[in-house]
Design a protein around this nucleic acid. Structure first.
Length: 689
RNA sequence: GCCACCGUAGCUCAGUGGUAGAGCACACCCUUGGUAAGGGUGAGGUCGAGGGUUCAAUCCCCUUCGGUGGCUCCA
């Protein structure tokens, strides 16, 4: 006789098997009406799930008691809505085979195989949504039925969908005793789908939904298998929630760095220059320069030395490092000099031959550098080192080139040429732990100064099953342990992920999300026992013997391109004073104040800030609007009154009214300290709140 | 790289099988205005590029380049 423990601790006793839905009804009609499903012993289930023995039970509704949207409720709604969409699409596109349709954080998708050439386009969304509305309007129950594995397999084999058959096989392999189908309505009469559930009780519970977009995917994520069409949608319990979600998406779009980059003229990517090759326009370059100055100061404080190295190097260098053999596909092809080319052409050497001979080393060429480490290593190796000299820390804003797949390139976040704020530390083994901490503190300083708190940390370890990693397992163990320990010191939660290591060593990565919700790796710190071996690096120890240094690779920004891209979105284009491309705009009320405005401008420029004057033939209101749209931190409005009193009327970005008047000298000194302290001190504090 | 969609003025976007439009930006004129758009006039386009169908293509078809959304990849 089941004894049900509810979340408030109360217990309900039943003398016969019951269902979650029945229990909800027993508690109250309101709850019965609101319930979408139940968590039985922590597992999300249908309301119709039969309960035969003691359990804990929590009913799932669209909103929990405190008014928050319940993610489990959304899960049920979206999973159910995916079914409704699949049914609607199968009605409109006969012959469509269903593959897999899970809920997501922001909605759901369904992968489908359409009969050749008959995939829907976005123009069909209206029809699909109309069909879905019909199904939802009928408020049909989602009815579950279980078949034995054998029966179920027979049924699927008869229906002839290899995709569903495969899903069933995987359920079977996963230890499932039965296969379940969900019918939208009456089993045997209405539409059904192989699905492990759970679902909302009926279609009518889907309050609001929208078909969002089309994309493609590969079956099981494997590009050698069938190509599928993925239809994305979303669903909510109510219309206002859907509208709020759509509005949020729209807001996110406005923060998109590609949009803002164009609008604020921060960078340009030009067809004629090449895909994924970023041109930094003056305004974006100002931001980058400030960031580089910032990090250079921090590096100097930590005992780094700056170096410069060329953009190319001999293939032999990258054969030694392993980059060329391991990552040939993702590099620009090697450069072969004229004489070689002429000679090879005379021999009738084919492109294939040339590739092979470059790979084997029979023909030498140059490579656009995919990484800076080999160059830095050769700097280290260019002179002998004593154990007393270590750590040697070589830093460079080094530009590297990688042949990213064309479909992956976009904006500043994935590009083919980018500049890393790179450095390589050559350290004694006993120094590894401490140097790692130094690297992490640098990352923390950067993220802290910029107010970027929304990041996660990943410790990337080797995948024991893969053979792409070079070096001794014992060294890998040591390096992985050092990373783990350093990550622990961060007091930020981190995950350990096998298979995420670089080929030469484990790493600690800092990962942020963009406005669209995509994750990007920014800063990275990597421990490397392997390249020192490949390059036979050494230092002389206290024992007068040769010893092998350990390398640490680190780039707290990751790349300037990606970092600035993420930063544009982080600030929604409204950069703090120290980073803003145009920091102050002086705005004379009329030509009568032009002279004083020029004086103010000169004073601002004298302390090294980027400022302009807008003496345009427009009314003040219009020019204020222009400055506001350009997201300029400070606007100094000056008219005859201000000139008379030697003050400026100050307006800050993001504040509705003007802040008030400030004597010119205080304005200048306040600007200076806000700039120099990178916002730690603010000019705004000169005004009453 | 794969699939889908998109490419019209500097930007955002309408539009049509008979060689094109709006708003903003830009230029000039009037206006000299005190905190988020003052008024007028004007200039600006090989409708991404190449090929095809057609009497005629910005529009239809093919190819190509670029962008977007995904997938796959990412030292």
């Amino acid at each position: 006789m089941p004894k049900i423990t509810l979340p408030d601790g109360s217990i309900r006793q039943y003398d016969a098997p019951t269902t979650a839905g029945q229990i909800a009804a027993d508690i109250g009609p309101g709850l019965a009406k609101a319930a979408l499903g139940a968590k039985i012993d922590g597992t999300l289930c249908d309301l119709s799930t039969r309960i035969e023995s003691d359990c804990t039970l929590a009913l799932v509704t669209p909103k929990s008691r405190d008014g928050q949207v319940d993610p489990d409720g959304l899960f049920l709604l979206r999973h159910s809505c995916a079914h409704v969409m699949a049914e609607a699409i199968q009605r409109l596109f006969p012959g469509t085979m269903l593959v897999y349709g899970p809920p997501l954080d922001t909605g759901f998708y369904y992968d489908m195989a359409f009969p050749d050439g008959r995939a829907p386009s976005t123009d069909d969304f209206i029809a699909i949504e109309a069909e879905m509305a019909k199904i939802i309007g009928e408020n049909l129950p989602f009815t579950r039925r279980d078949l034995s594995i054998a029966e179920g397999m027979d049924k699927l084999a008869g229906e002839g969908s290899k995709f569903k058959l495969d899903n069933a096989q995987r359920a079977k392999d996963g230890g499932s005793a039965t296969l379940s189908w969900y019918t939208t309505g009456l089993p045997g009469t209405n539409w059904e789908d192989l699905c492990r559930g759970p679902h909302a009780p009926s279609t009518g519970r889907i309050g609001a939904f929208k078909v969002m977009s089309l994309a493609s995917s590969y079956w099981k994520g494997d590009e050698s298998l069938d190509r599928l069409t993925r239809v994305y949608g979303t669903a909510f319990a109510t219309k206002p929630e859907l509208e709020a979600h759509l509005k949020q998406l729209d807001e996110a779009k406005k923060r998109d760095h590609r949009m803002l980059g164009k609008q604020l003229r921060l960078f340009h990517i030009d067809e004629m220059v090449g895909q994924g090759l970023v041109l930094w326009t003056p305004r974006g370059a100002a931001i980058r320069q400030e960031l580089q100055t910032f990090i250079s100061e921090a590096l100097r404080d930590q005992g780094y030395q700056q170096v410069f190295t060329p953009h190319i190097g001999k293939l032999e260098l990258y054969r030694t490092s392993g980059h060329f053999p391991y990552y040939r596909e993702s590099q620009y092809p090697p450069i072969v000099d004229h004489d070689q080319m002429t000679k090879l052409a005379a021999e009738g050497c084919s492109c294939g031959d040339l590739a092979n001979r470059l790979a084997s080393g029979e023909v030498e060429g140059y490579l656009l550098k995919p990484m800076n480490c080999p160059h830095h290593i050769r700097i280290f190796a260019s002179e002998p080192h004593s154990y007393r000299d270590l750590p040697v820390r070589l830093a460079e804003f080094g530009t590297v080139y990688r042949w990213e797949q064309s479909g992956e390139i976009g904006g500043l976040t994935r590009v083919r040429g980018f500049t890393q704020d790179d450095a390589h530390l050559f350290v004694r083994e006993d120094q590894v732990a401490n140097e790692l901490l130094g690297c992490l503190s640098l990352v923390k300083l950067i993220f802290g100064t910029l107010g970027m708190n929304d990041y996660r940390v990943r410790v990337g370890l080797r995948d024991p099953k893969s053979d792409k990693y070079v070096g001794e397992p014992s060294n890998w163990d040591k390096a992985e342990e050092a990373c783990r320990n350093a990550a622990r010191s961060l007091s930020v939660p981190f995950t350990e992920e096998a298979g995420e290591a670089a080929f030469y060593g484990p790493k600690i990565d800092f990962i942020v999300r963009d406005v669209i919700g995509r994750s990007w790796q920014l800063g990275t710190v990597q421990v490397d026992y392997n390249l020192p071996v490949r390059f036979d690096l050494s230092y002389i120890g206290a024992d007068n013997e040769k010893h092998r240094p350990v390398m640490i690779h680190r780039a707290p920004f990751g790349s300037m391109e990606r970092f600035v891209g993420v930063l544009i979105e982080h600030f929604a284009g409204a950069f703090p004073l120290w980073l803003a491309p145009e920091q102050v705009r002086v705005l004379p009320i009329s030509e009568k104040s032009e002279e004083y405005a020029q004086e103010v401008l000169t004073a601002i420029r004298k302390i090294g800030l980027r400022a302009t004057i807008d003496s345009g033939n427009e009314r003040v209101q219009a020019r204020i609007r222009d400055a506001s749209e350009a997201k300029i931190p400070y606007l100094a409005v000056v008219g005859p009154r201000d000139a008379q009193q030697r003050v400026v009327s100050l307006r800050a970005f993001g504040t509705e009214a003007n802040l008030g008047e400030l004597p010119l000298e205080r304005f200048i000194s306040g600007l200076k300290s806000e700039y120099k302290t990178r916002g730690a001190e603010s000019l705004k504090s000169s005004f009453p709140a």
